[in-house]
Write a protein that binds this DNA or RNA. Structure first.
Lengths: 232, 232
DNA sequence: CGACTGAGTCCTGTATACAAAACTCATTAT
DNA sequence: ATAATGAGTTTTGTATACAGGACTCAGTCG
């Protein structure tokens, strides 16, 4: 058992990310530092440090006299993240060793076919998808790029909680994954990249449609639970 | 005169970035919080907040019991940043309105030709280059992408201070800029992107060569000035 | 002579304290 | 009735305090 020492700010940060990506937080909601610190059982100092860290990743925003707030869900930001992730994942593929890509292709194909058959609940679908992409990029040696991808994907996950898994969508996505994997098996890198970009494009579009519908249903409140104060 | 309120942590952060990108700091050097805070005339709290913000951008690193240190200059990180910036700038071009690209082409050409004639000192060269790229991307509507580019370029600037401007290199870079601009003028986006990627590739390679030479000259110390303690 | 040990010091990570800005809300003026 | 004012209260942003871990270095044991 490897004992890891962690600072409070790291733990707080992880907990905040968990809450943000699990959808149990009012997305545009203001943050009362004292209250949240009390709730987490820590002082304001490490909490503020965690918030500042998250601010750089776009999950938290702040204004000078008014403090922090959870970054509001924002269609355009989501729409902007899609293409960025698409090109970065493509780059990661290009930088991977062709041999490695060929060697993981069977596993990629298997995962894609398995997942298309079972219709699971939301978190499972997202988890499988993330796993597939992780395997896809497992050979990329560019650490800075991988780090960047991780950060950006966290920002995306905030929005994914809104995505309702839909049989048709899952099937199509699995098909696209399959297409990527088949190209890799044949050593057709540019084909794989094209399919990957298409996968990102379609996924983004799907979520944008759902988001629009969701917003039209309940026009005013993006916040499922209201914070005590700090309307931001 | 627009009065802007700024937090201390924002000002500290800006000052640290300035020092880091101007090369007046020991790159791998450890940070003594109390000492640096005193030097800046602030308390440890906003200083730590600034450091944490910078840590997310890769300019600062930290270890649990040992505190912060300026991220050491690291060839592989630099080599990794190049391709990432290349594809992101290319994406920014693709997302820009073709009309806008065509309209800025003349200015891009002019800047490129002007700069190739004059051989300036280091900071001027870097400044001109940054200006050219800023103009090139001025039409990109993807704010998240632009923000990302800014952050990554700051990380790059740490290394650029080591680059010695060299007549031949400047001329070639200007040629490449010219090539990008000419393609844009003709509406040849993919040509422009290819030239842009080449420009990034060559620039990166040049700096890597110089860095290797620099490191061979003075093998042990990357730190021009030594900190008091905290060798990290 | 070299490795280990432990007291002393320094430094980080976290908690608390404090001043000033922002908000609330009742009262006054228009 | 609406807008303006100002006392009172939160809340943020920064400074200071404190506990425990990390480093230093001299002394001891092999």
């Amino acid at each position: 058992m490897a004992i890891v020492r962690q600072t409070l700010r790291a733990q707080i940060r992880a907990e905040l990310v968990r809450r943000l990506t699990s959808g149990e937080l009012p997305l545009g909601g203001g943050i009362n530092e004292a209250q949240l610190a009390a709730e987490l059982g820590v002082s304001r100092t490490p909490l503020r440090e965690a918030l500042i860290g998250l601010e750089n990743e776009g999950l938290i925003e702040s204004t000078v006299g008014k403090g922090f707030r959870f970054a509001p869900a924002n269609e355009s930001e989501f729409a902007e993240l899609g293409p960025v992730l698409a090109v970065l994942e493509s780059l990661a593929l290009e930088l991977s060793a062709p041999d490695h890509l060929k060697s993981i292709a069977p596993a990629l194909i298997e995962k894609a076919t398995n997942y298309s058959t079972e219709i699971d609940e939301h978190s499972t679908v997202m988890h499988h998808d993330a796993e597939w992409h992780d395997l896809l990029l497992s050979g990329c040696p560019n650490e800075r790029l991988m780090e960047l991808l991780t950060t950006l994907k966290v920002a995306l996950r905030r929005y994914e909680v809104m995505l309702v898994p839909d049989q048709e969508f899952i099937r199509r996505s699995a098909d696209e994954h399959l297409q990527v994997a088949r190209c890799l098996a044949e050593g057709d890198l540019s084909g794989a990249i094209a399919a990957l970009k298409l996968n990102w494009h379609n996924g983004t579009q799907q979520l944008l449609r759902q988001y629009a519908a969701f917003r039209d249903e309940m026009p005013d409140s993006t916040a499922p639970t209201a914070p005590t104060r700090n309307p931001a």
